[in-house]
Nucleic acid binder design. Structure first.
Lengths: 246, 246
DNA sequence: CGGCCCATTGACTAGTGTCAATACCTGTGG
DNA sequence: CCACAGGTATTGACACTAGTCAATGGGCCG
């Protein structure tokens, strides 16, 4: 029974193998995120993968180091940060389960990946992955879909950074977070896994600006801030207006 | 002699079929942009491609429209713009020959592509391309490399937008333009195909800020502005300092 | 219970957006 | 060849937003 090999630990319950999610090109299923891989494909990937664990604050890999593998998140949240002089760093992306991470250029990682929570991930060595993809065009196509998805998200990030006001940027950030959750109970509650500084580094604002803007949105009745990790959209109409305008 | 067949016109010399360039993952050829496709692959793509022409200011395709094809630029320069309310638009990318353009999501284009100069491009219908890619894993792998390259460029764009000062952003923009030219005579001369407004929309600044910053850099002896389309880096050291800092 | 780090708040400054006016380049027509 | 018209680019004056520095408050872990 190759499907459910003798799992030793909790991660083995969903441990059929790597899994990646994206919004596909095609028009079916109106723009929802779906799992791209079949059971067979996950099994193929599992054969070349190992599982790694990363503690909060630790690096999965570091920029400029030789790139040996690509990773697929199973549990936890990560950020990729771009080294910037000795100034404040830039967060280029937040990564959640079913995401791919470990983009390289000329054999080296282009950024550093840091865990925000305890992280579990599949580690897929690049040579083995490359061999596998060349044998399995369908699987390779799904990787292509996923990378295109990440490209769209990066462009979305750039669009957010183009907004002039902090309120507009923060709203776009929360909107992004909300839409990465499965379509389940999307009732306006948003869980913030990352710190204010991380949000600031992602949105190219100061942590103080993040605080001030949260306060402004709360006083305006647009957001409810339950605690540092949980906010809620109260006035959807004005919230969306922040995203559309300026 | 398949390499240099009897060219009829300038475009025909490189007219063997679609061609895409990127910096590959692997460590060979120290980070230079190379052509990804073999002659055979270009020929395969040529069989499903047609050639389209776009006048300056005209659209190659428009956001939200059903996506029927992906395009590969042969000549000219384009921009992709994101529709943003009725406010000023956001330029998400500039595209040059050997680039791919036409990313879709759920069957529709995610942005609009506008020609800045007379443009010639290969038009590759998505269904035919998809069939071809599934038969040709090697070719598909090269598309994957190209999309990863575009992802890195988009992240680079986001990093540029994260810079606080206009001088730093503009320097990063010029740096990007310079590095898209082939490594030939990279003597500091930079050709600006796009208008000041386009630069402003790409860097999330006002056109006035672009003008002011050009003036500041010229007065500081960092840049020489020959005319509206040609600038030149005079003080490379301080120019690079603008890119690294802030 | 205490210490540490993160988050928040306030005062001030610096830099960009905005609005308005002028100068410049391009292509057109006389 | 020159004059003209349109759009683009530049320049200036002013308002406004976010950055910075500094200090306080709050939560979490030892």
């Amino acid at each position: 029974m190759p499907r459910r090999n003798s799992g030793q630990q909790p991660s083995a319950r969903r441990g059929h193998g790597p899994d990646i999610e994206a919004v596909p090109f095609s028009t079916r299923n109106g723009g929802a995120r779906i799992s791209l891989l079949s059971e067979a494909e996950r099994h193929q990937l599992a054969l070349i993968s190992s599982v790694v664990h990363v503690k909060p604050g630790a690096h999965l890999y570091e920029a400029r180091q030789p790139a040996g593998a690509i990773f697929n998140l199973i549990h936890g949240v990560m950020k990729t940060v771009h080294p910037l002089g000795r100034s404040r760093q830039i967060v280029t992306a937040f990564l959640f389960p079913h995401d791919l991470v470990g983009l390289s250029e000329a054999g080296r990682y282009v950024n550093s990946a840091v865990a925000l929570t305890p992280v579990t991930a599949y580690r897929m060595p690049i040579p083995a992955l490359e061999r596998l993809l060349r044998r399995a065009p369908e699987l390779e196509y799904h990787f292509l879909c996923k990378v295109c998805h990440e490209l769209r998200e990066s462009q979305h990030h750039a669009i957010a950074l183009g907004r002039k006001t902090a309120a507009s940027r923060l709203a776009m950030f929360l909107h992004m977070l909300e839409h990465r959750q499965p379509t389940e109970v999307r009732n306006g509650d948003i869980h913030l896994t990352m710190s204010r500084s991380d949000i600031a580094d992602y949105m190219a604002l100061s942590p103080e600006a993040i605080s001030r803007t949260f306060r402004t949105l709360r006083r305006g009745g647009i957001l409810a801030i339950k605690n540092r990790q949980h906010v809620s959209v109260l006035d959807r109409k004005r919230f969306d207006a922040l995203i559309d305008n300026a």
